[in-house]
Design a protein around this nucleic acid. Structure first.
Length: 593
RNA sequence: CGGGGCGUAGCUCAGCUUGGUAGAGCGCUCGGUUUGGGACCGAGAGGUCGCAGGUUCGAAUCCUGUCGCCCCGACCA
């Protein structure tokens, strides 16, 4: 096959599009692969489509190998199934909703768990039909608050989503591993670096969830890893809690004046200045217990205040908080939230900057305390640990307040930020932090959807059992962008061989007839050797323009037919290394090999 | 939703402060010269200056409102 550039529907841009920031977005638009239609919505030009199809072909092959069969659902779906699982509400503004002429509600599917489940329910009712894995490659629609970075986070995007159906937990494990293995093969074939991290299984009730992250600074996820092989999304990271210590020998807590110390930094400074430690070591932020007031918004619209206590050297990571409190959403508490708990006369109350679990009058935080506010502790605040924390009086902190002895809580919570050097929960050493872009997600859903939608089968004993499911997603269009992001230079794109829109880009550089005659021969012989060839045959375009376009388009192998054409010699140009090698026309096909 | 920025030709932008016939480069069309790193000469086509209202003899320019877009943050199965 070959395509003549003079005929190809493409226009390369000499300048960067003004609305594109990240490399993949900028280059895909400049090189004529995609065009923006609306925020987060793109049209695909021939070059872009060719790359997409190559990626999809690899995915289809590996799905086939994994035993999954392809189906196809509409993007336009009725409200009812999503109503049953509660997601019509849960998604909130995140989905595109529309109505038909009768006023019936529809949505553009953000994901397809519900209808896959219903289709299987529709057709199957015996354990003999299981296991089953089916998948589709379909566009998804999410009304993202802020689409960004071109294809990396769009409102319309293409996803391969697969679903497995088993009637035993062991069967689900097998189905899950098949998909997981397929993902490893897919990303390897695509030449994409990836890290498999533990992900939050969260409110979905699933038992196992792993994300495939591509390490990149433009990534939206932060993950941790250790040399010992541990890797997790920070959202799923669990803190190693110190052993509980005996507090029998500890001195009693005392309230000390700490004027003008509304922040941890000022508190540490004043503590060292006015109340130095007896052992001579300086107080640090890690000696303080910071109490942060969060407001939870529950699904039913109810607003609840929660206070979390964590070491003062750590911030609350809102993403981790969202996970910890899901499905409620989390926001910082406002001034109005505080009003009802303010100090009244001599009665201690919540004083911004001086909040703590204890007061001379008794417990201040916790469901059974004076305020009745739920109080949750970071796991590091273990029994027997002593702290400097607010005394619930302006300008005062309490020193040597011991967890378990002087105050309690309503439980522990994982909301503190993860820091470089924190110990991994599996004991494999200190963690490092990195950014990654999620390119795939494998997830044991368990019985949540089957339960909600009534997908049951009869087992060997004639008993009805609820099916257990897995869902497995790969962002096809996102992967394309991630590949572009990982493979470019200042001149343009550099596609990996497996996804390049063409195998070879042949340039006719020169105006003599012989150049074009030899170029035609070269194209013909490459074609007959089975290569898909892009031929820059534009007669009035100067070599410099053709070279520039070739670099921008990013086909990794380029053949220049130019000044030595009459002598039967052309150049093989490696886009990635920049190396140019003279090659005899007769052996061009083997040189490309 | 909070913060910042921007809407003028297909693209990248100038013009706005100080109101007076709509501009440049690239791209596109025609003719000619050029051809190994984004050539040149000549002639062209192409814009309700985001939209609405106001001020004014006169608005791209000043005022008010509105819509949209981009970036950062929040959000994101």
């Amino acid at each position: 096959m070959s395509t003549r550039l003079s005929q190809l529907f493409v226009r390369t841009l000499r300048e960067d599009p003004v609305d594109a920031e990240v490399a993949s977005h900028r280059l895909l638009v400049r090189a004529g692969y995609i065009r923006r239609q609306a925020p987060g919505v793109f049209a695909w030009l021939p070059l872009g489509l060719k790359v997409r199809r190559k990626i999809e072909a690899i995915i289809r092959e590996e799905m086939e190998t994994a035993g999954a069969q392809e189906v196809h659902f509409p993007a336009l779906l009725p409200r009812e199934p999503y109503e049953v699982t509660g997601r019509w509400e849960e998604y909130g503004d995140g989905i595109f909703r529309l109505q038909d002429r009768r006023g019936a509600d529809y949505l553009l599917a953000p994901t397809h768990e519900e209808v896959f489940t219903l289709l299987v329910k529709d057709l199957y009712s015996s354990y003999k039909d299981l296991p089953l894995s089916i998948y589709q490659i379909q566009d998804k629609y999410r009304d993202e608050a802020r689409p960004r970075a071109g294809l990396l986070r769009g409102r319309e995007f293409t996803m391969k989503d697969a679903y497995s159906f088993d009637y035993t937990d062991a069967g689900l494990d097998v189905s899950y591993m098949k998909q997981r293995d397929a993902y490893e093969r897919i990303f390897t074939r695509l030449g994409l670096e990836y890290v498999i991290v533990q992900a939050d299984a969260g409110a979905m009730g699933g038992s196992r969830s792993e994300e495939f992250l591509h390490p990149t600074p433009v990534g939206e996820d932060t993950f941790v890893r250790t040399d010992g092989g541990y890797a997790a999304n920070v959202e799923a990271f669990t803190t190693v809690a110190p052993e509980a210590r005996s507090y029998e020998k500890l001195t009693p807590a005392e309230v000390l004046a700490t004027p003008d110390t509304p922040t941890i930094a000022t508190l540490v400074a004043v503590a060292n200045e006015k109340h130095p430690r007896p052992d001579g070591r300086a107080w640090t932020a890690a000696d303080t217990l910071k109490n942060i007031v969060l407001a939870l918004k529950h699904l039913d619209g109810k607003r609840e205040l929660v206070i979390v206590g964590l070491p003062g050297d750590r911030e609350v990571d809102l993403k981790r908080a969202e996970v910890a409190f899901a499905p409620a959403t989390v926001e910082p508490a406002t001034a109005e939230d505080f009003v009802k708990f303010e100090a009244d006369g001599d009665k201690p109350g919540l004083v911004k900057g001086y909040i703590g679990p204890w007061s001379p009058e008794g417990a201040m935080l916790g469901e059974d305390s004076a305020t009745g506010i739920r109080y949750l502790l970071d796991p590091r605040v273990s029994d027997g640990s002593g702290w400097i924390t607010g005394a619930n009086l302006a300008g005062h902190h309490v020193f040597g307040l011991v967890a378990g002895r002087d105050f309690g809580s309503d439980g522990t919570v994982e909301v503190a930020e993860v820091l470089v050097g924190d110990p991994a929960p599996d004991g494999s050493g200190p963690v490092e932090l990195a950014r990654g872009m999620e390119i795939g997600h494998v997830f044991q859903l368990g019985r949540k959807y089957a339960e909600a939608l009534g997908l049951k089968v009869l087992d060997e004993n004639g008993k009805l059992v609820t099916v257990t499911m897995g869902s497995y997603g790969i962002g096809v269009t996102r992967i394309l962008a991630v590949i572009a992001e990982a493979n470019n230079d200042e001149k343009g794109l550099i596609w990996p061989k497996n996804v390049s829109p063409f195998d070879v880009h042949v340039i006719a550089a020169g105006r003599e007839d012989v150049v074009y005659e030899v170029a035609e021969d070269v194209v013909a012989s490459l074609e007959s050797a089975g290569f898909d060839v892009l031929f820059d045959d534009r007669p009035k375009v100067s070599p410099g323009v053709k070279f520039g376009d070739a670099e921008l388009l990013g086909v990794p192998q380029i053949v220049i037919v130019g000044r030595d054409a009459a002598g039967g010699v052309v150049e093989h140009w490696d886009r990635r290394t920049g190396a140019r090698t003279p090659v005899d026309v007769a052996s061009i096909a083997t040189a490309i090999g």
